[in-house]
Write a protein that binds this DNA or RNA. Structure first.
Length: 804
DNA sequence: ACCGCCGGGTGCC
DNA sequence: ACCGCCGGGTGCC
């Protein structure tokens, strides 16, 4: 409950501009149809046309201004009519009749998205030029070109706006990942909370409060607005308006988890109630911790079937809490608009709406998001610790909720931000950065305010504990290593490492598993490399490879989206991608589709998925023939020593191999440790239970949590633990850091000690070396590597790992 | 619109 | 004159 909440301060009313709203809604409506084809689309070309009937309408346009084209099938004079509107939705004119026939055809059949730019501005009061560009899917290109030429219009090829500066995919990804970083502005002052707040605010929280108050009250426009004479000029869309654009009253508070976003927001809300207003005993969870007991605040929890839907009652509350589910349920029942049964929360005119855990509503297509966008409020806030998950499109929802005009209309967001950025246009990215910066405050735990760290955390130290293998283990390990080296050095000599990447990974994984415990190997695979004979055999082999790539938590990246693989499939050339990513490659390249990693031919019918059965059998086997390993022994002696020294210290035991966690349960039980386990297979509900149990300081609560490296995503709080045992090195040092951050965070009272177990004279030692190099690279903060360099360095990595 | 188009007025040079 | 030419009226879809 706590996580899905918004606050509304009731009782204020304000007038919206109904004309602009309806028109932009009309335009938004048409935009969403095409938006199912997200940011895809290539430029087919452009042509010059004319807009007529200017003198009948009030909409004005400048030189270079973007305009939108809206079909008017109901127009009584011409069913092919195409209306031209400026950025603010004011009608400018119509597309000339003969051209409108063409556009109507293309638009109605969804063959292309048509966009207009006015090249000269208004040269006369009757007609004007417009450059129309046609964007669509490659397979529609022919049809569009045919349509255009058959009506004897000339399609100019090539881009209209020349994008001279472009980014590579990697640069883009880096820039995007850093979008919310370095937004700190030392100029922000601090502001004390009003007396009603009893928890003292930390300096950075006072700073956030000051910033939030400024955002709600400051009249300054974002700097992409320039005042030109009587008009306000938008430098991104080249549009201008006579009336001062309404400033966003609110923003995105995107501080890291644990920096006190909720407390700051409560302080903000209370700052509106300090004129001697009576406030009542609060009911909510976190609220009563921070609000003085004698302060009376009317807070209503709007959920449950008996909730009071009376809008007068709701309006009389100082604060109403609800969940996204309740909000969207009310909204979809009432259809949002219907007068008689309108959604109560959509009827009240709020002073302020706060979206807590705002990333929950990042997908604009969900009912929840639609319901949220339709709330009627003066001030708007989004609280989130993770403003971007993966996609630029996630951001639109935030912009739309804030009504950051004109980008709350999809077309302008797509044209000015989304498409330019995804196509690597540098100015597009700069615009995006500017846009984000003007509404966002984000600090991380490592941010500094005026040279001082934001929050002071206890020390954290890392020690590497070398583990010696027993003679038997060493023999087994060397056998596997020699075998692996032979195979990999052959690939290196042939230059086919990437072609056999899954094989190579499989070998490495085996070695890493040996270092932990021989029982991890499960169904062993003899090294492949020989072409399989039957399709069934091939399939079996591919599934095995897929299992190896994924089952280890090695965090493979999909080479298409450069993100962690989701919905994994493996190609016949044994490369793993997200299914949607590779399906898109195949769809767009059709028969010529090639594997992005090795350029081998790929087909949709040959993608192999992971079968969900057959997991359990090996588990029981593991437990029956129990034996220990050097690494298990090393951990156990550390834990036993720790318990005898101080039995109040709690530990995280982390591995990438969930099976290793299962193995570790046996000696932990034997030694009488109380422990819990958190891994990626558990339901959200179960995870929350486990975390609560571990965090509890009740007597008899667990001393140890077995944790899979990637479990739980970001943000879970394990501050009860001050010891971390990293059982096996990860490819990605950031993953280890994030894991440690779960206990080294606000609320941690002790120094945090991290122990990394590394088997001496093994692939693990080499992984640690590579981790260091990677860290150096990150610290240099250069994202200059393009995808092909990336692959080369990966080959180098493998050679370094195998000492070739 | 300092255009094009329409349709009425007009008619040797 | 069932044409050409002139000049006024007119003008999105």
């Amino acid at each position: 409950m706590q996580s899905r909440r918004w606050f509304g301060g009731a009782g204020f009313s304000f007038a919206d501009d109904p004309v602009t709203e309806t028109l932009s809604q009309a335009i938004r409506g048409t935009g969403e149809e095409l938006d199912r084809e997200p940011d895809t689309g290539v430029l087919f070309g452009s042509l010059r046309g004319s807009v007529v009937g200017l003198r009948y309408y009030t909409g004005v346009v400048n030189k270079g201004e973007m305009v939108s084209l809206v079909r008017q099938p109901q127009n009584p004079y011409d069913r092919n009519a195409v209306m031209v509107a400026n950025v603010y939705g004011s009608q400018v004119g119509h597309i000339k009749r003969e051209l409108a026939v063409l556009l109507a055809n293309i638009m109605d059949n969804n063959l292309a998205r048509v966009e207009g730019v006015v090249p000269f501005g208004v040269t006369n009061q009757f007609t004007m030029s417009v450059v129309l560009s046609f964007w669509g899917r490659e397979e529609n290109r022919d049809a569009v070109v045919r349509q255009i030429t058959s009506r004897s219009f000339k399609l100019q090829s090539g881009p209209t706006g020349t994008h001279t500066h472009t980014h590579t995919l990697t640069q883009l990804k880096n820039a995007f990942d850093n979008l919310f970083e370095n937004l700190m502005d030392d100029k922000i002052g601090e502001r004390e909370a009003v007396e009603a707040v009893c928890t003292p605010l930390l300096p950075h929280q006072k700073q956030a409060l000051s910033w939030m108050c400024a955002c709600e009250n400051n009249a300054a426009l974002p700097h992409f607005w320039e005042v030109k004479g009587e008009l306000f000029y938008n430098t991104l869309t080249h549009s201008s308006v006579r009336e001062r654009p309404r400033r966003v009253r609110g923003g995105i508070l995107a501080d890291d988890m644990g920096l006190g976003k909720t407390l700051t927001t409560i302080a903000l809300i209370l700052s509106n109630f300090h004129h001697g207003k009576p406030l009542c005993e609060p009911v909510s969870d976190q609220l009563d911790q921070h609000v003085r007991a004698d302060v009376k605040l009317n807070v209503y929890l709007y959920y449950g079937s008996e909730r009071n839907r009376d809008t007068h009652f709701l309006s009389s509350q100082h604060m109403v809490l609800t969940t996204y589910n309740v909000l969207s349920a009310d909204y979809s029942v009432s259809g949002g608009w219907v007068c008689g049964s309108a959604s109560p929360l959509h009827t009240v005119r709020w002073l302020r709406v706060v979206l807590d855990e705002g990333h929950i509503i990042r997908n604009p297509n969900t009912q929840q998001s639609k319901a949220v966008l339709k709330l009627n409020t003066q001030r708007r806030w989004i609280l989130t610790g993770t403003p971007i998950q993966n996609n630029l499109r996630d951001l639109w929802m935030l912009v739309a909720f804030l009504r950051l005009k004109p980008f709350d209309v999809r077309e302008w967001w797509n044209r000015v931000i989304q498409r330019p950025v995804t196509q690597g246009d540098k100015t597009g990215l700069q615009n995006l950065q500017a846009l984000v910066k003007c509404v966002t405050l984000r600090r991380t735990k490592t941010s500094r305010v005026c040279g001082r760290p934001l929050v002071s955390l206890p020390e954290r130290s890392v020690r590497i504990e070398e583990v010696e293998l027993t003679q038997k283990e060493r023999e087994e390990y060397e056998l596997a290593r020699t075998e692996g080296r032979t195979t990999i050095s052959r690939y290196v000599a042939e230059g086919t490492v990437l072609r056999n990447y899954a094989d190579v990974l499989a070998i490495l994984v085996r070695l890493r598993q040996f270092c932990c415990h021989p029982g991890l190997l499960g169904k062993t695979t003899t090294h492949t490399g020989v072409v399989a004979v039957t399709p069934a055999e091939l399939r079996e082999r591919l599934i095995m490879k897929l299992r190896l790539v994924l089952g280890t938590g090695s965090d493979e990246e999909c080479a298409v989206c450069l993100d962690s693989v989701r919905l994994p499939v493996i190609t016949h050339c044994a490369h793993v991608y997200c299914r949607p990513c590779i399906a898109e490659v195949i769809r767009s390249e059709q028969e010529q589709a090639r594997c992005p990693l090795c350029r081998g031919q790929i087909k949709a019918s040959e993608l192999v998925e992971f079968p969900l059965e057959e997991e359990e059998e090996e588990e029981s086997n593991l437990l029956e023939n129990w034996r220990s390993s050097s690494k298990v022994e090393a951990l156990m002696s550390s834990l036993l020593r720790l318990r005898s020294e101080d039995d109040s210290i709690r530990s995280l035991v982390v591995s990438q191999f969930t099976r290793f966690l299962t193995i570790l349960e046996i000696p932990l039980r034997e030694e009488g440790f109380k422990f819990v386990r958190l891994d990626g297979t558990m339901s959200q509900k179960r995870r929350a239970q486990v975390i609560q149990e571990f965090q509890s300081d009740a007597p008899g609560s667990p001393l140890i949590m077995l944790l899979s490296l990637k479990a739980g995503g970001v943000g879970i709080n394990l501050s009860a633990a001050s010891r971390v045992f990293l059982m096996d090195p990860a490819w990605n040092p950031a993953a280890e850091d994030q894991c440690v951050d779960r206990c080294h965070r606000l609320g941690q009272k002790r120094d945090v000690v991290i122990t990394k177990f590394i088997v001496k004279g093994s692939v693990e030692e080499n992984m640690v070396k590579i981790q260091r190099q990677k860290q150096d690279l990150v610290e240099k903060a250069f994202g200059t590597k393009n995808p092909s360099e990336r692959k080369t360095s990966r080959v180098d990595e493998i050679r370094a790992l195998m000492e070739l």
